[in-house]
């Protein structure tokens, strides 16, 4: 298999997703099957090919730096699980 359970747990850590042990096992197997299939791309010679990251050729689309209509802070905070005096509240970041 292309991946071990440890690989999956490491990647889950990077992605900040908690997995159950059963999920880790399932994902190890399923993603290994995918990566095994993807092996076919190694046989394709791309040494002289430039990468394309976007489908059209637009580059550096800018706009004037002007103030536009904004969302109301009260409305935005309605979606926040915790807020306090107009700010979103989160657990302490730095000890």
């Amino acid at each position: 298999m292309a991946l071990s359970k440890q690989d999956i747990e490491y990647v889950a850590k990077l992605a900040r997703i908690k997995l159950t042990s059963k999920e880790s096992e399932e994902l190890t197997e399923q993603l290994s099957v995918c990566l095994d299939y993807f092996e076919m791309i190694n046989a394709i010679d791309t040494s002289n090919i430039e990468p394309t990251s976007q489908a059209n050729n637009l580059v550096n689309v800018t706009r004037e730096d002007v103030v536009n209509e904004n969302m109301s802070v009260d409305d935005v905070l309605k979606n926040a699980p915790e807020h306090f005096e107009g700010f979103i509240r989160i657990p302490k970041v730095i000890d």
């Binding site: 991946l3 690989d7 999956i8 990647v11 889950a12 990077l14 992605a15 900040r16 997703i17 908690k18 997995l19 999920e23 399932e26 994902l27 399923q30 993603l31 995918c34």
Partner: peptide, 19 residues
């Protein structure tokens, strides 16, 4: 939060992409 909120396919793809 992310472990509970995301379903199986979404987890699969995030992990594949992160990898």
């Amino acid at each position: 939060t992310r472990g509970l909120g995301f379903g199986k396919e979404v987890k699969r793809r995030i992990l594949l992409g992160t990898y």
